[in-house]
Nucleic acid binder design. Structure first.
Length: 876
RNA sequence: GGGGGCAUAGCUCAGCUGGUUAGAGCGCACGCUUCACAUGCGUGAGGUCACAGGUUCGAGUCCUGUUGUCCCCACCA
């Protein structure tokens, strides 16, 4: 038999074991009609960089679920993949080019895409390597990428269908424009932050009078595009001027003064400049009053030719000049500091400009409704369910989705324009001639789709949809989606309505939402703060198992968690404990033939640990089914460390080292049985070390990854026996505490006198009691008198313990201890009495609770009596 | 303005559908070279479960309000 190394060293085996799993197809999902399918899709990490701690947690949770279900006998598909991350990747590559002194225009579309694919290949590979380091047991044979052939086909199909139904349209509307990325953004891609700015008050002259109207703006440069000034209807201050014309300063354009409900008369001057081309609200006002839309800014944030003499200037430079020009003209009334929310590009953080622009949109109202209903009707459930509210909140207030992006890296919009007749052609296949006029002068739309358009199809595009592939039929809809609450609006929601619309089914039944991994001080981990911790470095230092466990313990679904090295250390210590417990068992087994559990005569302690094991099997299974991974890990660690290591292993030593061969075999059998089960329970959480230890277990067996998850066996529950045995544990704890209380050194063995009804239990466990309690003898006595007239005593569940007072015993300490105990017991009696005196409790509470309370009261009354007697004894 | 989270031991957090004496890890105190493990073992100290009401026989748990704190959305130009 091979021997385990004395120290737990994950570096010795983690990579080796992963390679072995992979080579032997342990992750492969088979279409097996004899099994129940279980599937989940990995949220595809962006190919922009590497995995961070948030990914590590997300992947670990998925892997735990995957391994658990696989061991339970499901045919599990965990499908891995990466996302092309259109805008984010393009930004990275543009930056890379910049460093080389290049622009994407110089490179051209094709050249740029070549670079992009090279980038993708490099980073997707790196991400996969990281996933492997973590132990992710996903099916690599089905690795997907949002821009691979399968997914691209699905994108075209989905676009075509939506277009065909009239749910995709092209129109000029106000969108969020990033002047640095030079693309449109969806509403969800804009981040708002409170920035310090100014409020400039300008006077616009009213034609035919000497009067002025004062407006206030935070973006003076947009005044060049003003096509009206609006006031609230019936605002007395301006009623005489309504219908009059104003002259827009600097430009000289004649613009009307209109009335519109949108204006808040309480705010500012009650008069608002209206710039339909550069503000979403103004755009709406413009529509109502049929105002011209004059766009004065270029795509790169400079002013355009309609800005007159300001053309070509950067937006901020133009702002400066306009303000100073207005001041020169005496039209600047005042400047106030003004903090306001400014939108920023979620990728490059530049200030976005609301700009009117011709873009493609998805009509959301008809899609949102069924997506809301599906969750209402529980076809898809959020865990925890409070996130359903956030989901509803989004969908109920949703606006049409801008899906076109002025980028190159992504799915090109499958629309062609005929150069001759102007026909717009949307098609699954690339058309060669115009279906209307037969012209071959077709040009494809230059834009690409929002990255999330393809991500939205992920649960089925990866399975070959729209084709009815066997895997689509077998694995779709998926069972669970695991992701963070921060991308509910970006992704979860869009998968929901896309899945329902395209396949007629919800894409997943459960959505397990987790929180963010924060740093030690509770701050978000971010590049700008430099407080991010690289999961790989942690793995390098502590091993993947420790990292995984640390990311799961003490974490509740949906809640943020803090990452601390101390947690990783705690996890490492636990794994080390497991390692050593296994080593202990195996070093005792050596090459001995150990009988199976069924052939062994079980001792009380054996039944107790098996009972505890069964309770743990049940708790862990239930918790995992409810996705309470943190609780499952907690229960397991409690069982392994406290019950198995601290108690059972110690309890087994007398049998192991004694000369009763049958007892020794029995103990070995139980140790192996419990170890084997514990390893299998632990495997989803700490896959590497459990696989490694498993390989040392005697007998013929395969890998633990393919082993069966332990099942609850009713006849091994031994509830009564286990409860009785708790008395022995209580006795040992009592004796230990008594010794400490009277300053008796642990090494000094004491003679115990025990008044008890459980004589058989005591005699069966005599050796364990002696060993664990540090006693020289356990003597069953009729009364405390046997211990002599001066003895310390304590009541426990098994009876009353007496230890004769030796010279080492501190009498005062003992009195103090007894008095404290008396106080506690008196308190308990008062509490129980109070409860039992309550008629309501007696009549309405379940009978069992009332009985329990009575029993408790009796026990405490008995204890009180004995403590008082003991105190009297010591006084004497 | 709308929505949501959190508030439990010195620290980080668990506590499911209300029911034993409210738990864990870390930290702290005291004591241990006990032949798997000092990444360890034993014993202990430490909590009016934010505050005020309410429902109930019974509330950390349910309801209402208050305070503090964090997040998301909307946005007054």
């Amino acid at each position: 038999m091979r021997e385990m190394q004395t120290t737990y060293d994950p570096k010795q085996f983690e990579d080796r074991i992963y390679a072995d799993w992979q080579e032997n197809g342990c992750f492969r999902a088979e279409i097996d009609e004899g099994k129940v399918p279980f599937s989940l899709m990995m949220p595809p990490p962006n190919v922009t960089g590497q995995l961070h701690m948030g990914h590590a947690m997300d992947e670990t949770m998925q892997d735990v679920i995957t391994r658990f279900k696989r061991m339970q006998g499901y045919s599990v598909l965990w499908l891995p993949g990466t996302d092309h991350a259109s805008i984010a990747t393009e930004v990275k590559i543009v930056n890379q080019l910049k460093e080389e002194g290049l622009t994407k225009e110089e490179l051209g579309r094709e050249g740029f895409l070549e670079r992009a694919w090279a980038w993708k290949n490099k980073y997707a590979g790196r991400i996969c390597d990281q996933l492997k380091k973590l132990g992710s047991s996903c099916d690599w044979s089905r690795l997907a990428f949002t821009m691979d052939e399968r997914c691209s086909k699905a994108v075209r199909e989905a676009f075509f269908r939506l277009y065909d139904k009239g749910l995709i349209y092209r129109g000029s509307r106000i969108i969020n424009w990033c002047p640095d990325c030079k693309t449109a953004l969806s509403d969800a891609e804009v981040e708002y932050s409170e920035d310090a700015g100014f409020f400039w008050h300008f006077k616009y002259p009213v034609d035919g009078t000497d009067e002025f109207i004062t407006i206030a703006t935070t973006r003076p440069e947009t005044m060049l595009g003003d096509t009206a000034v609006a006031v609230h209807p019936g605002d007395a201050r301006y009623s005489s001027l309504v219908g009059k014309t104003l002259t827009l300063p600097l430009v000289g354009r004649k613009i009307p003064l209109v009335e519109d409900e949108y204006v808040d008369p309480e705010f500012g001057t009650g008069a608002v400049k209206i710039t339909p081309a550069h503000d979403p609200n103004d755009f709406e006002v413009g529509l109502r009053h049929d105002l011209p839309v004059i766009r004065v800014m270029n795509d790169d944030g400079t002013m355009n030719e309609l800005a007159g003499e300001y053309a070509g200037l950067d937006r901020y430079e133009a702002r400066k000049r306009i303000v100073s020009e207005m001041e020169k003209l005496g039209l600047l009334v005042k400047v106030e500091p003004h903090a306001h929310n400014v939108g920023h590009c979620y990728r490059c953080h530049s200030t976005v400009e609301p700009i009117v622009s011709k873009q493609w949109f998805v009509k959301m109202a008809p899609l949102a409704k069924p997506a809301i209903d599906a969750v209402m009707k529980n076809k898809t459930k959020f865990v925890p369910d409070r996130f359903a509210k956030i989901y509803y909140n989004w969908l109920e207030n949703i606006r049409d989705w801008c899906i076109s992006r002025q980028l190159w890296w992504g799915h090109r919009i499958p629309v062609w324009y005929c150069g001759d007749c102007g026909e717009v052609i949307c098609s699954r296949e690339t058309p060669s001639v115009c279906p209307k006029c037969g012209s071959a002068h077709l040009t494809q739309d230059e834009d690409v789709l929002d990255t999330w358009f393809s991500s939205a199809l992920w649960p089925f595009s990866t399975l070959g949809w729209p084709d009815k592939t066997p895997e689509f039929e077998y694995f779709y809809p998926t069972d669970v989606l695991v992701t963070g609450y921060d991308i509910i609006p970006f992704w979860v929601m869009r998968m929901m309505f896309s899945g329902i619309e395209q396949t007629g089914k919800v894409p997943f039944h459960d959505v397990l939402i987790h929180g963010l991994v924060r740093d030690e001080q509770g701050r978000k981990m971010s590049k700008s703060l430099g407080n991010g911790i690289d999961p790989l470095e942690v793995i390098d230092k502590y091993g993947a198992d420790s990292l995984r466990l640390s990311l799961l313990t003490g974490v509740a679904p949906g809640n943020d968690t803090r990452f601390t090295e101390a947690k990783v250390e705690a996890a490492r210590n636990f794994i080390n404990k497991v390692w050593n417990a296994a080593r202990f068992v195996l070093m005792n087994v050596k090459d001995e033939e150990v009988p199976p559990l069924s052939e062994v005569r079980l001792q009380p302690a054996d039944r107790w640990i098996i009972s505890r094991l069964m309770a743990t099997v049940r708790e862990v299974t239930v918790s995992l089914q409810k996705y309470d991974l943190g609780i499952a890990a907690d229960k397991l660690s409690d069982f392994v460390w406290n019950d198995f290591c601290d108690w059972y292993i110690e309890l087994s030593k007398p049998a192991l080292y004694g000369d009763d061969a049958e007892k020794r075999k029995g103990a070995l059998s139980v140790l192996l049985y419990v170890l084997d089960n514990a390893l299998r329970l632990l495997h989803p959480f700490i896959p590497f070390v459990t696989e490694e230890i498993y390989s040392y277990l005697p007998g013929e067996h395969g890998r633990i990854i393919s082993a069966e998850f332990p099942r609850y066996v009713g006849k091994l529950a031994y509830k009564k026996e286990a409860k009785a045995f708790e008395g022995v544990i209580g006795l040992i704890k009592t004796v230990r505490a008594m010794k400490v209380a009277v300053n008796c050194p642990p090494s000094r063995k004491v003679h115990i006198y025990l008044v008890t009804d459980c004589k058989r239990l005591v005699s069966l466990n005599r050796q364990s009691i002696l060993r664990l309690a540090g006693a020289s003898a356990v003597e069953i006595a009729e009364s405390g008198a046997a211990a002599g007239n001066k003895a310390v005593s304590q009541v426990c569940d098994l009876g009353q313990v007496f230890i004769p007072l030796g010279e080492l015993v501190d009498l005062e300490e003992e009195k103090k201890r007894l008095e404290k105990e008396l106080e506690r017991v008196t308190g308990e009696i008062a509490r129980a009495n109070g409860k039992l005196a309550n008629q309501g409790f007696i009549s309405k509470a379940p009978k069992k609770l009332v009985d329990d309370e009575r029993a408790k009261l009796e026990k405490f009354l008995d204890m009180k009596e004995k403590i008082e007697a003991q105190l009297k004894e010591l006084e004497a």
